[in-house]
């Protein structure tokens, strides 16, 4: 069995890149894709731990994360379409009704 430490470091790197995308980008769709990146990096950690511990629970959790990600993508993109129809922009600085 391969050592899982490199996998965990890779997972942390991908997670941080995704987080940087979320906080630095202003395009709603790219922020959304960065969130997908973060979800995927956590999946990689779960599969690595599952492989090390010999327990299938991690892989089943990844399966559920993917289900939730699919639901989230459908809802999120519907919100993006509704927002664009209303404000004609995807710039998150201009979508600020709920910000103080």
């Amino acid at each position: 069995m391969p050592d899982i430490q490199p996998y965990l470091i890779l997972s942390a790197t991908l997670f941080v890149i995704g987080a940087a995308g979320v906080v630095a980008r202003r395009n709603a769709i790219i922020v959304f894709m960065s969130i997908e990146l973060m979800l995927n990096s956590v999946n990689l950690s779960l599969v690595a731990f599952s492989a090390q511990l010999g327990d299938v629970t991690g892989q089943i959790l990844v399966f559920f994360v993917m289900t939730v990600a699919a639901a989230e993508a459908a809802i999120g993109l519907a919100i993006v379409i509704a927002l664009f129809r209303r404000k004609q922009t995807l710039n998150l600085d201009e979508i600020n009704i709920l910000k103080w």
Binding site: I4, E36, S50, A51, Q59, M66, A73
Partner: peptide, 24 residues
Amino acid sequence: LTLHAQFIAIIQILVYAGAIMVLF
């Protein structure tokens, strides 16, 4: 696949690369 998780690898391609990214 290198972690011997074949099912998750296939689902990753089918669901993420196939379904979710087409939506995006």
